[in-house]
């Protein structure tokens, strides 16, 4: 399952604080959600932290975010590792990412790469279309004939091809958009749009979303409601 972490700016605006303090407040939620997901037995959790479009934000905010992410990564690295969580960073291709941050990402991936617990994918500098374009490029470079391309072989060229399809996406703050997030993997995902802003989102909200998801009737385009609620998110 996946979370689009939306609403930090609005959270801060409602409190007449600078946008950056919204990001600061988001840290608690991130850790809370990771813990809640782990407890609920979620095996694959993706968090949308920073999109390729987010570079258009004011450079001061981007700088702040970079520093914040670095601090958060370093602060929680040991804990994540101790909890047996395998961390990966999806995207992270832009040269604007500070090298020190990129090294921390790489270090965290090295540190937790052998863990067998939950896989946490942080989409950072991620764009769903860009991933699809990258996969297409790699297919063309690989000289794969057109007839040989099917959905499965295409998916094998996406970054982190072992990531399964996303079953449930939670987008906080009530916004109902996809925003270029893991486009390929969310094809059959159920979406939830809780109105609560990300910094206020807590484990109970998360569990509530999971429960609501389990009530849903997933048909994957068919009519027989036989896949109802059986699959674990």
């Amino acid at each position: 399952m996946a979370c689009v972490m939306d609403g930090n700016g609005r959270w801060a605006a409602r409190r007449s604080l600078p946008r950056t303090s919204g990001h600061l407040a988001a840290e608690t939620t991130v850790i809370d959600v990771i813990e809640a997901a782990r407890t609920a037995g979620v095996e694959w959790l993706s968090l949308y932290a920073f999109s390729t479009e987010n570079w258009q934000r004011p450079s001061a905010e981007v700088d702040f975010l970079m520093r914040l992410v670095r601090r958060v990564v370093r602060k929680h690295a040991a804990l994540l590792h101790a909890r047996g969580i395998r961390c990966r960073f999806l995207g992270v291709a832009d040269p604007r990412i500070p090298p020190a941050l990129a090294r921390d990402f790489a270090d965290l991936m090295t540190l937790t790469g052998e863990n067998r617990g939950m896989t946490l994918t942080v989409a950072f500098d991620h764009g769903g279309r860009r991933d699809i374009v990258a996969a297409a490029r790699s297919l063309i470079r690989g000289g794969v004939p057109a007839e040989a391309v099917d959905e499965r072989s295409f998916a094998a060229h996406l970054p982190f091809p072992d990531t399964p399809d996303v079953d449930l996406v939670i987008r906080t703050s009530g916004e109902q958009r996809i925003s270029n997030f893991m486009l390929w993997q969310v094809a059959y995902a159920e979406w939830m749009f809780p109105p609560v802003l990300w910094p206020d989102f807590r484990a109970p909200h998360f569990v509530e979303c999971l429960r609501a998801y389990q009530q849903r009737d997933r048909r994957f385009g068919g009519v027989a409601p036989d896949a109802n609620g059986e699959r674990r998110p």
């Binding site: 370093r74 690295a77 590792h81 090295t110």
Partner: peptide, 14 residues
């Protein structure tokens, strides 16, 4: 050792 190195780098205060 690699992981230990990564951990040390990650937990060294900035």
């Amino acid at each position: 050792m690699k992981r230990a190195g990564a951990l040390i780098r990650l937990i060294t205060p900035l």
